[in-house]
């Protein structure tokens, strides 16, 4: 019997990190997740002075404008951010020195909560005493976000992982070169930055190294570079869905690569007089 309704667990986690896990009876995991994800968002708010949405140009500001950002992954915190800080005062004021780090942390919090939503969704489908542990489909999703292709390597799909890495990281690097690093500024390109950050550590490392670079001249292929980097980030979402689907299929025993060994194990159990109900999920970490 499933430990909960997967959609409810996912929605609860979206509104409040850890709430979905609490709903399916994983209170400790939920509490740790809550502290980590919300702590990251609050730290980001503190460092940025809550001015992250003030990067948006006045004509772009609206009630739903900030929602097209990675922070959307942590909806509860995003609503709190919008209600408490919004677009700030009507008069211009300087950004704090740590605004870039702060807004990056709030974005990372949103992405981490997306991974938590994957985790809560899959765990809700399992019986209460069965946990996926390190085999959770959410782990390769997180790894793929951290570095495109890493989740595929983790799953043993090295050719695919290498091609994904070369394609997506190559696009981010090429885009940064074409745009002369102008794509790395969230203040300059609020929405494109949101797409780009989905490419994970490569985009964030480039931002760390070249993000503060000032523009002194016209960049001929600046827009093309911007598109390259943002599209690479959004394509990484496809890669994250791919690793999630693969891990879920493998867990459920329907993947062609794992199906045959599972069947032969079942047959052996049956011939030995063992239970014919043995499934790959029996390899789960069963906790008392």
């Amino acid at each position: 019997m499933p430990s909960g309704e997967p959609n409810v667990a996912t929605l609860l986690t979206w509104f409040l990190p850890g709430a979905g896990h609490l709903y399916i009876g994983r209170a400790t995991f939920g509490l740790v997740a809550f502290v980590l994800v919300e702590g990251l968002y609050l730290l980001g708010l503190k460092l940025s002075g809550g001015m992250g949405f003030e990067f948006l140009q006045p004509e772009l500001r609206g009630p739903f404008a900030p929602a097209l950002a990675p922070e959307l992954g942590n909806l509860g915190a995003l609503i709190y951010h919008m209600q408490s800080y919004g677009y700030g005062l009507p008069v211009p004021r300087p950004f704090p020195d740590t605004v870039v780090l702060g807004t990056t942390l709030t974005a990372i919090s949103g992405v981490l909560n997306l991974c938590l939503m994957c985790h809560a969704n899959f765990e809700a489908r399992l019986p209460k005493d069965v946990h996926t542990g390190w085999k959770s489909p959410a782990l390769p999703v997180l790894l793929t976000w951290i570095c495109p292709g890493l989740g595929h390597w983790f799953q043993g799909r090295k050719l695919r992982g290498t091609l994904v890495f070369l394609s997506l990281v190559g696009c981010v690097v090429l885009g940064t070169i074409l745009a002369d690093a102008s794509n790395l500024s969230r203040e300059r390109h609020y929405y494109y930055w949101g797409g780009q950050v989905m490419a994970g550590a490569p985009a964030l490392l480039l931002q760390l190294v070249w993000g503060a670079k000032s523009l002194n001249s016209y960049v001929p292929y600046g827009e093309a570079g911007l598109v390259f980097a943002a599209v690479a980030g959004m394509l990484n979402i496809l890669a994250m869905l791919d690793v999630y689907g693969f891990a879920a299929r493998r867990w459920e025993g329907s993947d062609s690569e794992t199906e045959e060994p599972a069947r032969s194990e079942d047959a052996a159990n049956a011939s030995d007089g063992g239970s014919a109900e043995t499934t790959p999920s029996a390899t789960a970490e069963v906790t008392a």
């Binding site: 091609l163 994904v164 496809l238 890669a239 993947d255 062609s256």
Partner: peptide
């Protein structure tokens, strides 16, 4: 050339997404 390059990446990723076998 840039369009062709980005197209190749988009198509490769969509091919991987829709086909589990490499």
């Amino acid at each position: 050339l840039l369009f062709a390059l980005l197209s190749a990446v988009i198509v490769l990723m969509s091919a991987f997404y829709s086909e589990p076998d490499d």
